[in-house]
């Protein structure tokens, strides 16, 4: 939006609030307040399914609860225990490894691959090859997590697993090992698996977003002598920025609360080498029956995720506003 159109915004808006362009709905003459009714079904369901259990859970963090006898109030005991719990801190440092494997690598690689497929392969070798490759990259995303774990489990297993057989086949016997059973290789193995699982998601979203880029913009840049990398940075990245935000945020959330692969592949082990907060909470909830402490871990995790999301969304909103005022 140009400056002129902001200045032209209807007078109603300026009366309603300070920053005219921001307070106005996109439909001329209709007050944002009248849109609340559209939020009613969504927010009602949200309250029932998410907010109530969340509050219930926060209450449990102040109790000793084994699942049978009614919860017993213990104040901050669980939280004090949490602060000194090394397993808990290990689980969070493993979360950072998960962020690298599920956010950093897939987003960067996804950006390059999406641009490569859309821009080079799609245009020079035909859209069919590009969409075939995209579908291949997306395959692991459609694989049910449980099924993926079963398959990966027998590819990586020490006796006659496919990976060790391949290594032996090419004469690298020394590298063959119990990939998920060795504390040194378990976490890196999980990271590789997560990159494999995640990569297709940013590619599909970014390729869809790239269609919004006006091809004439590329042609103009090309005529101006911009090379592929310059075009990629100046045009591609800036135009699909909203999608980059969506992908990074949703993947970060997914990485922080990753559960399925750990549950099915390693159970957090060997020792605590692959434990993550969500799995630790689960094992306290359902294996140790320490429901109060499980709730505390889960709540701490939720707080971390919420803080990350707030920072992200505020940054995104600020960027959008800057864009609008430009």
């Amino acid at each position: 939006m140009t400056k002129a159109s902001v200045a032209d915004a209807p007078v109603v808006a300026r009366k309603a609030g300070g920053r005219s362009a921001v307070r106005q709905s996109l439909i001329p003459g209709s007050n944002p307040r009248t849109f609340w009714i559209y939020l009613v079904p969504g927010l009602a369901l949200l309250t029932l399914i998410i907010v109530v259990p969340l509050i219930w859970n926060v209450y449990l963090t102040f109790t000793d609860y084994r699942g049978i006898k009614p919860p017993e109030w213990v104040g901050l005991e669980n939280w004090v225990k949490l602060a000194g719990d090394t397993t808990f801190w290990t689980s969070f440092s493993n979360s950072i490894a998960m962020i690298v494997a599920m956010v950093v690598v897939p987003t960067l690689l996804g950006l390059v691959l999406a641009a490569m497929l859309f821009d080079l392969i799609g245009k020079k070798f035909g859209g069919k090859i590009a969409s075939f490759l995209r579908a291949t990259y997306y395959l692991p995303q459609i694989l049910p997590g449980v099924v993926a774990a079963i398959v990966i489990g027998w590819i990586l297993r020490p006796q006659n697993g496919a990976l060790n057989q391949v290594l032996e086949g090419v004469g690298l016997n020394g590298l063959a090992q119990n990939w998920l059973g060795n504390p040194d290789t378990a976490l890196p193995s999980i990271m590789v698996i997560m990159i494999w699982v995640q990569l297709g998601y940013p590619i599909v979203i970014f390729m869809a977003a790239l269609q919004r880029v006006d091809p004439e913009l590329y042609e103009a840049a090309e005529l101006d002598g911009a090379n592929w990398i310059q075009r990629f940075r100046a045009i591609t990245v800036s135009i699909i920025r909203p999608e980059i935000f969506v992908v990074t945020l949703t993947c970060t959330i997914a990485a922080l609360k990753v559960f399925g692969p750990i549950y099915t592949l390693t159970g957090g082990g060997p020792g605590t080498s692959t434990i993550v907060p969500a799995y630790y909470a689960y094992s306290e909830f359902f294996q140790s029956q320490q429901v109060g402490y499980g709730a505390t871990i889960a709540t701490a995790l939720t707080i971390v995720i919420a803080i990350v999301s707030v920072v992200f969304l505020l940054a995104q909103t600020r960027l959008e506003r800057q864009e609008e005022e430009r």
């Binding site: 949200l46 259990p53 959330i253 609360k257 559960f259 689960y282 429901v291 889960a298 969304l313």
Partner: peptide
């Protein structure tokens, strides 16, 4: 509001099991 709604995505699912 978006943030509140996103809570549904942020909560680890184990949290929901007992209450629900």
């Amino acid at each position: 509001i978006v943030l509140l709604i996103l809570l549904a995505n942020m909560l680890p699912q184990e949290v929901l099991l007992y209450p629900l």
